[in-house]
């Protein structure tokens, strides 16, 4: 079923929209939530919460890319849940691993001046993503935004896990070089 059909069902307040959305995106939603939370029960709850949010938001919202809209809702729900339980759950899920990978090319700001760079860094990252091929960009966003692991990305991209890892490795190197070129050197960041 296409996104626009699912959106139309939500617009029409057709409860079958929920099951259609789950059929189309349920597995991916659950994976993303699980990778953020590291707990299946919490992940399932987050997906349900996200579906409820989406149900409440549409209408009036009219998302053109329903999948991304739903995944964003799932991600936000999972991150909210993660913040609530961070003390007990520190280290769970894919976020620590993803953060660890990126830390090599995006070191941490640790003073006020550098915090001001955060916005510039975000803009620079967006510009950098524009330079990537669609495949490389999809893999990068899947890993660091959706928090999917290499195997999960590989399965959905119909790639091998090694190819995903290699793509991520190359992209991180490019990002590091790009940030350096843009003035985000280790000394600055």
């Amino acid at each position: 079923m296409e996104d626009r059909e699912i959106t139309a069902m939500f617009q029409a307040r057709d409860e079958a929209a929920i099951s259609c959305a789950m059929e189309q995106y349920g597995a991916l939603c659950l994976t993303v939530a699980y990778n953020i939370l590291g707990n299946r029960g919490d992940a399932e709850e987050c997906v349900n919460d996200a579906l409820l949010r989406v149900w409440q938001a549409i209408p009036p919202a009219r998302p053109q890319v329903f999948g991304a809209y739903l995944l964003t809702a799932v991600r936000h729900a999972a991150l909210d849940r993660r913040r609530e339980t961070l003390a007990e759950r520190r280290g769970a899920g894919q976020i620590p691993a993803a953060l660890d990978e990126l830390s090599d090319c995006i070191p941490a700001p640790d003073d006020p001046e550098r915090i001001l760079d955060a916005r510039a860094l975000r803009d620079t990252l967006n510009r950098f993503l524009q330079t990537l091929t669609p495949d490389a960009r999809t893999v990068f966003v899947s890993r660091y935004w959706l928090c999917l692991n290499a195997g999960e990305i590989a399965e959905r991209m119909l790639w091998s896990g090694a190819r995903v890892k290699m793509s991520l490795s190359r992209t991180r190197k490019k990002l590091k070089a790009y940030l350096k070129k843009e003035g985000f050197s280790d000394e600055r960041i």
């Binding site: 991916l28 995944l71 993503l129 960009r137 966003v141």
Partner: peptide, 10 residues
């Protein structure tokens, strides 16, 4: 970018 990624993955 998320839109693109989700669309391509799905």
């Amino acid at each position: 970018y998320p839109e693109e990624a989700v669309s391509r993955l799905s």
